[in-house]
């Protein structure tokens, strides 16, 4: 606890047991949506009564990359874009662990895009939560792989002309077994989606659309994050099971939310054990984690 920390209220905030309170207040700007996503994630852990020893959070670099530092769980803050490969290693060493990658769109889809698609293709049993604020926020608002066409960022001062990624389509086409998208305003649905993703066997992906007030909203003259929340309220449509091809997000256009994919497929370890078991027969010992883990 810092020396100048404010006096504690009589009752503690219920999230305090899940947060590293010595690091709070966090660095996120006023009206940023990442804090809301963290609250939803912590609530999902509590609601699903997941033992905290069996969860670990991995983040990359970026505003959302700070989540690993704020959650009072086993967590790791990796280099830029490498959250997914670290999480895969963690999962393979100890498959009983619920490994959650909590990172941003620039980290997962931009810098670490290749890791993302191959982990989805292999259907490694991890959960990926991608907070999408449409640009590289921490580095100064550069154009990202998800920036909508015509949006102004610090490296697209005349408007972005590149086609953005449609993250649910990317995840679904690469082989994810659970794909959902919610905005930072859909807190209860987001909490439910996090719970479902945590309990899903296989590569589960949840995209959270979050407001970035300091860069995205300011540069595009959209007001504050609160105005973006109001925009989500008026312009998001829930369409469960929608075709991921229809989920492109245009600049200040309708955002389609919902659960798009929820299927069963053998995971990476299942397939590996089955293949080697078949080929090697009794010589093969079923892999259930590293001996020392």
């Amino acid at each position: 606890m810092r020396a100048d920390a404010p006096a504690k209220p009589a009752i503690e905030h219920p999230m305090e047991s899940l947060l590293r309170m010595d690091r709070i207040p966090h660095i996120w700007c006023p009206t940023c949506g990442i804090g809301t996503a963290v609250t939803a994630f912590a609530s999902a852990l509590e609601e699903n009564e997941i033992p905290l020893d069996s969860v670990s959070v991995v983040s990359g670099i970026g505003c959302t990359g700070r989540v690993a530092g704020y959650m009072k769980l086993d967590s790791y803050h990796t280099t830029h874009g490498r959250a997914v490969p670290f999480a895969v290693g963690l999962h393979l060493a100890k498959p009983s662990l619920k490994v959650v990658v909590f990172s941003g769109d620039g980290d997962l889809a931009g810098i670490g895009g290749n890791h993302f698609i191959h982990t989805a293709r292999r259907n490694v049993d991890i959960t990926v939560i991608c907070v999408n604020n449409f640009l590289y926020a921490m580095t100064g608002g550069q154009v990202a792989a998800t920036t909508p066409v015509s949006a102004n960022t610090s490296t697209s001062p005349y408007g972005n002309f590149e086609q953005p990624f449609n993250l649910p389509l990317l995840a679904q086409s690469c082989g994810a077994v659970y794909v959902a998208r919610w905005t930072a305003l859909h807190i209860r649905r987001m909490t439910k989606a996090f719970g479902e993703a945590l309990n899903k066997k296989g590569f589960s992906f949840v995209e959270v659309i979050a407001p970035c007030s300091t860069l995205y909203a300011r540069r595009n003259r959209l007001g504050t994050g609160l105005d973006l929340m109001k925009f989500y309220h008026d312009n998001s449509e829930i369409r469960h099971g929608a075709d991921p091809n229809d989920l492109n997000i245009g600049f200040q256009e309708k955002i389609i939310c919902g659960k798009f994919v929820d299927i069963e497929k053998p995971t990476f370890l299942d397939s590996m054990n089955e293949c080697y078991g078949k080929s090697l027969g009794e010589k093969y010992e079923i892999y259930e984690g590293a001996a020392h883990a």
């Binding site: 219920p14 999230m15 804090g35 809301t36 609530s43 807190i187 909490t191």
Partner: peptide
């Protein structure tokens, strides 16, 4: 509990 869940700062809660 809507304020508690929406607050990005963990600064409000209701009992």
């Amino acid at each position: 509990n809507l304020c508690e869940m929406l607050c990005p700062e963990f600064a409000i809660f209701c009992v």
